[in-house]
Design a protein around this nucleic acid. Structure first.
Lengths: 210, 210
DNA sequence: ATCCATTCATACTAACTGGTATCTTCAGAA
DNA sequence: TTCTGAAGATACCAGTTAGTATGAATGGAT
């Protein structure tokens, strides 16, 4: 299976799933999970309910997939920054701005992730908790290594990791793309604030990619 | 009406409301708003549904009251700190630790506040948005005054205000009173991190009350 | 002791919605 | 043109629950 060429049928199925996820993300974000009916999602897609059940087993699966996608985007950024193989200070300088931009991009999925946790099936809630834990642990680990080699001044790496994740995640509740600040500006300023929180020894290494 | 002595009847009514709110807060926090039935709340109180409807008009009113209480606790802390009449730097040094402790104390109401926003009636959602906006504006205002008189180094007071509120609010999702860190320890460390974020000119004025 | 009013339990309804059984339609093959 | 099979629309069901009408019971006042 893996590695085989994708057939047209597979591509069609993937497209349907993608569109369904996008519509559900919009609606769950706007109205909340329980206030959104599957008829609402179907209507926005211009189809009817059985269309959704063909591609997703249930409303719960839709939610689980959206919730997981939010954390995975953040995890991808910390993994990519670590994979550069630089020191902890530079790793963070690369990670934070990218993380902020990733949160802004996927803010609706992130908001759903935060808000709708209690509407997940128990098994999906466990999966999500593991993903979140892994992400925070990744950040904490970089902070700890930075403290140990003297690049970062931090008392409690875990507390600081939570502070960073909280400050950035909070963007999902106030950032408005229609507002006066463009995403890149917000990313730049928020990154400066967050990195400042860490008192990195080389504060001039802040990197913002345009 | 206002200022009159409270009758026994009033006190009884207040007690019933308080207990009902406490039970609802527990359940909404554990299971989520929509997954909690009023029969659940009544059962935990050892009564039945009509008891609740006597004191609260509806399930929505219960939610609205819980959501508002979370923000009001935080607003009370910034108001109290400002009322001391000290400079912005010291105001923040007083505010932040108290704010952290307030969030820990009222964390369940805060979590509900964040998660269940979309389940509020439109009018209640507007009220909540105003309360939130006022709170952030209060923090932002102190930061701006601190920047203007040179006590605080901050580029964008609004962004920094959101960063502070986000970092602290996030406690509601990870702080565990059964965990290794006592509330006062967490408050102390989180306060240090947050105040460090501001590069106050007098970083040695951090005040933690035991 | 009796009466009365308020409080709350019992029992019910009406509305909603996730999920599904059935039928229709349409694209492509022969 | 006809056949076939799958995708999706129609129509429906079953379970849930916010909210309420009615009646019982309790506790205070006289």
């Amino acid at each position: 299976m893996a590695g085989e060429r994708m057939t047209i049928g597979d591509e069609v199925a993937a497209l349907k799933r993608e569109r369904t996820l996008a519509a559900a993300t919009e609606l769950f974000y706007e109205k909340g999970y329980t206030n959104t009916t599957l008829d609402d999602v179907a209507e926005r897609l211009g189809v009817t309910k059985p269309f959704i059940y063909k591609n997703f087993g249930s409303k719960h699966m839709l939610l689980a997939e959206i919730c997981a996608s939010g954390v995975q985007a953040a995890q991808a950024e910390i993994d990519a920054a670590i994979a550069l193989g630089k020191g902890p200070g530079e790793t963070l300088s690369v990670f934070v701005p990218r993380y902020v931009e990733a949160i802004i991009t996927t803010r609706k999925a992130i908001a759903i992730n935060i808000r709708e946790e209690k509407n997940l099936l128990p098994a999906d809630a466990v999966t999500l908790a593991r993903l979140r834990h892994k992400f925070v642990a990744s950040v904490e680990d970089v902070l700890r290594r930075g403290r140990d080699n003297g690049e970062i001044e931090v008392t409690d790496p875990r507390i600081s990791a939570f502070a960073i994740v909280g400050a950035v995640s909070w963007l999902t509740f106030w950032y408005n793309p229609e507002g006066p600040l463009a995403a890149t500006e917000v990313a730049e300023r928020m990154s400066a604030v967050v990195l400042n929180l860490l008192e990195t020894v080389q504060p001039d290494t802040l990197q913002i990619d345009a």
